[in-house]
Amino acid sequence: MGYIFDLRGVLSGQYFDWFLIGLAVTIALTCAAWCLAMTMGIILTLIRMIPFRPFEWFVALYVEYHRNVPLLVQIFVWYFGVPSLLPRPARQWINGHHGEFLLATIALGLAAAAYVAEDIRSGIRSIPKAQNEAARSIGFGYLGAMGYVVLPQAIRIAVPPLINQTLLLFKNTSLAMAIGVGELTYRTREVESYTFKTFEAFAVATAIYLAISFGIMACGAYAGRRLKLENA
């Protein structure tokens, strides 16, 4: 016993800066992977809507791989596996340009894209067929009915689950420490090993993760209320 909880040690001087740098990298990683996830998720949704079986199979395979293989393994595949398949100049380029950040972004973004594609698809599925029929009856073609009537409603329905995916993505960025990305968890380990204030260091990290997670959840709750549509 006799342990004295004291945050001053881990929050002073350079250690405070390490937390800030870690947080900045975590946020950058979240944002970059998020953009990739949304883009790829929408592309997957569009591919799946093309009535050609092999495309559907491709998307199904994509989704199943990313949902069923542990995320850490996916990150290792990208960090250790993929570069070894590339030609030497490409490998050198990656190593010279924060390869670990780049490859972590790809791994996290592509994995989240599988979930994003599922959320958008279930949003589209939840719009009654009659809505499409009504739009077609006014004279809209397939794309017009989709773009002006079905998708605007589907996106409203998909926003709350998509915000949930954002939250998961944010938390999953901590796995990137395993390949040496200097994000918040990685920096916390550093602070801990320099100060030996294990509990304090992780208390600070926990508080930061919690604060941002609550922020994202609050956005989700607000969006859910704002975007809710009454049936018509």
């Binding site: 009659a130 809505q131 029929e133 009504a134 009856s137 009537v149 605007p152 549509l229 018509a232």
Partner: peptide
């Protein structure tokens, strides 16, 4: 065309 269930666009 007017439907039984109106089918207005709720958004």
């Amino acid at each position: 065309f007017v439907f039984q269930a109106y089918n207005l666009f709720p958004h």
